[in-house]
Write a protein that binds this DNA or RNA. Structure first.
Length: 662
RNA sequence: GCCCGAGUAGCUCAGUCGGCAGAGCAGCUGUCUUGUAAACAGCCGGUCGCAGGUUCGAUUCCUGUCUCGGGCUCCA
């Protein structure tokens, strides 16, 4: 009997009869693996378990324990979703349904533009469970693109996928697959599809789990609108989002994480902790800062100012509006107009609210003749800008229409730029770490293909300077081709918060264009006039977003150095009120933010109130404390209370917390 | 901006198949004077987002609009 030999990931080999499949291999290795197997990789390509193996191949069995396995699980669950929806809504058609982080989605168009509401999801989910219960096999079939068009005759979106990808000119399928379609079908004039019942097939490059019975730990999450092929001019489809996991436990853990994230939502905490609010009278994306929110903001800003002073930045200040001519010169009206508020006409002139601070800083630079001896000049401003964000994009503090950038523009000689950028990256990380962030994602964004100004050589030079600074920093980074600003490439640094979500904050941008447009110059050592390079840099990005991220990062439990109220002083009874006032006064004099909660309510209730406000410390003072100049200290997150702590010791402890940013 | 959903007291939410709108918490007043996560009682509080329409009558049905939420797109 003929045999084949394949190599396993650990380097060992297995011999199997000719015709054996990856599934057979899994069974040969062990029943546990056979049960857990979802797909396999053969010579590093992912395939169904049903494919026959060939002699000499490198084969690995993939389970839900790996990313690839989990992705497949989600992808297959998406297919089951499509099957359920198509069965339940006759006349519905389907578009694409890829796996995504934590789950999957599928896009549908229902007949006559019907929509699916959230409460219909339960019924869809129930139908999906029936399909899973039936344990239908996923059978792979390959046909020509032409046959594919016939198979999917009633499904225009599927036909469009086949036409645009599988039948792309050149036949290699590399047409426009920068988008989601590429996942659906490989191209090359052939298509593959999967059949898992008499009535349901789906266009797909695969692979899939062997049968629907392997699925089950999923939940449909929401319905949303989404444009076909991510194009606002194309039809809007009904998108159903779901999450899927390898086990019931993983699913439960995921749902728990979501609930935790919701508890940390800065919009919820902003209200609960009385930090700020968004009166609808102001319009979307505009907030007012309440005293407690403003207290934290001032600490953030003061810290930022101090670090900039230490870094030889020169504070500047500029107005909020300027003549439209300024924005023509800068190029903003050409390249950024859709994000700008419309012009205000008065006294025969036209003015725009500023969407960025850079042109003002360029004019400050230009106000005097500059020498190479002056460079680099680092200007710093907490500059409030206004951007007309799409109403649907506005999101609490994270995306607002007015926000304050901790904005710097550094004017440097070209040869100074690389070193300056390198030190900027270090500066940015140092400040972010001071606020408790220690995990970062960096990204290098290059020239946008359409909207941009300047020559290739300058773009290349600027991109190279950023790249080398990133390399030197040791940060890992990814490349975002075409993601740069209209005037130059950029580095973005995102921080990860306490529950692993990523937020874009810092940006460093190299710009040869604005100096050109504004005719900026300096006199070099050679006596000739040279053009400086301008480095744009926002560190926290926007104070508003930064604060929003901080709220969510700490879940509202700010460390003592940031907390709007560091300690609440609770007299046990009214007779201790005078002593409480004295404690308050002494701590206030040392610069601490403290308050007294008088004994009009029972102690337990006042403690509870302070805890719900997530205060770092609750100080209880009673007879013993009055007698010995002590306080009872109840620290947030501590176990129980410490009695009889001298006031001096507590003040020292709080001072040390503040110093250490605890 | 587009798709879907939602706006009821300061907050969280019930409710009205079209007939004078409810709870808890918060707030206020009084009593209680408290040693580590919710004392007791009473009171105040709503043009049911806004504007039209249908109706004897609209918070409820319809239309428009504003705001919010989830997505898409975009972004600090």
């Amino acid at each position: 009997m003929a045999e084949i030999t394949v190599t396993l990931p650990d380097g060992s080999t297995r011999t199997l009869p000719v015709g054996a499949t990856a599934g057979d291999l899994a069974a040969d290795i062990g029943p546990g693996l056979a049960k857990a197997a979802l797909i396999a990789t053969v010579d590093d390509a992912e395939v169904d378990l049903g494919v026959p193996l060939a002699d000499g191949q490198k084969v690995a069995i993939v389970t839900a324990g790996s990313d690839a396995g989990l992705t497949t699980l989600r992808h297959s669950t998406a297919h089951v979703l499509a099957q359920a929806v198509l069965e339940m809504y006759p006349g519905a058609t389907y578009a694409v349904g890829p796996p995504i982080q934590d789950g999957f989605y599928y896009d549908f168009a229902l007949p006559d533009g019907a929509t699916i509401s959230d409460d219909q999801l339960e019924a869809v989910e129930a139908r999906m469970r029936e399909i899973i219960e039936a344990d239908q096999p996923f059978e792979r079939h390959e046909v020509s693109a032409g046959e594919g068009l016939e198979l999917f005759a009633d499904h225009p979106y599927k036909r469009e996928i086949i036409e645009t990808v599988a039948m792309a000119p050149g036949g290699d399928g590399a047409g426009q697959p920068a988008d989601e379609l590429a996942d659906e079908v490989a191209g090359g004039g052939q298509i593959s599809y999967y059949r898992n019942s008499d009535s349901f097939i789906d266009l797909c490059r695969g692979p899939h789990v062997p049968s629907t019975g392997r699925l089950g730990h999923f939940k449909l999450m929401s319905v949303a609108g989404a444009y076909w092929r991510r194009d606002a001019h194309r039809p809007s489809l009904q998108r159903i989002y779901g999450t899927a996991w390898a086990s019931r436990k993983d699913l439960a853990a995921h749902l728990h994480r979501l609930a935790e994230a919701d508890k940390r939502d800065h919009r919820r905490l902003a209200r609960e902790l009385d930090l700020l609010s968004w009166p609808t009278e102001l319009g979307p994306g505009l907030a007012v800062w309440h005293p407690k929110g403003a207290a934290v903001r001032r600490i953030i800003e003061d810290y930022s100012r101090r670090r900039h002073d230490e870094g030889d930045y020169l504070p500047v200040a500029t107005p909020h509006i300027a003549r439209s001519e300024l924005w023509e010169t800068s190029g903003h009206l050409d390249f950024y107009r859709e994000s700008m508020y419309p012009p205000m006409k008065l006294d025969g002139a036209s003015y725009h609210l500023k969407p960025m601070n850079c042109p003002f800083h360029a004019l400050i630079y230009k106000s005097a003749q500059r020498s190479y001896r002056d460079l680099p000049i680092r200007m710093f401003e907490l500059g409030t800008v206004y951007r007309y964000e799409l109403s649907g994009a506005v999101h609490g503090l994270m995306r607002s229409r007015g926000f304050t950038q901790d904005d710097s523009h550094i004017f440097a000689a070209r040869e100074q730029a690389p070193a300056e950028i390198a030190s900027l990256v270090a500066f940015v990380l140092s400040v972010l770490r001071a606020f408790g962030f220690d995990s970062f994602d960096a990204r290098l964004s290059t020239r946008p293909p359409e909207k941009s100004i300047g020559g290739d050589a300058e773009w290349d030079m600027a991109t190279e300077a950023l790249r080398s600074a990133l390399e030197a920093s040791g940060l890992e980074y990814e490349l975002d081709e075409g993601g740069g600003a209209f005037y130059g490439p950029k580095i973005d640094i995102d921080v990860r918060d306490a529950i692993g979500r990523s937020w874009q904050l810092s940006t460093i941008q190299v710009d040869f264009q604005l100096p050109e447009r504004f005719g900026l110059e300096y006199v070099g050592a050679d006596g000739n006039r040279h053009r400086p390079v301008m480095i744009h840099r926002a560190l926290m990005g926007s104070i508003e977003r930064f604060f929003g991220v901080l709220i969510e990062h700490y879940g509202g439990a700010f460390p003592a150095w940031l907390a709007p109220v560091q300690a609440s002083i609770l007299p046990v009874a009214a007779t201790h009120s005078d002593y409480a006032a004295e404690v308050e006064s002494r701590l206030s004099q040392q610069g601490f933010r403290v308050q007294v909660a008088e004994a009009q309510e029972p102690l337990g209730r006042r403690i509870r109130a302070a805890k719900l406000q997530k205060l770092p410390y609750v100080l209880v003072v009673g007879d013993d404390d009055v007698a010995h100049a002590t306080v009872g200290v109840n620290a947030r997150g501590g176990d129980g209370d410490e009695r009889g702590v001298s006031l001096e010791d507590f003040a020292a402890r709080l001072a040390s917390d503040v110093e250490a940013h605890r």
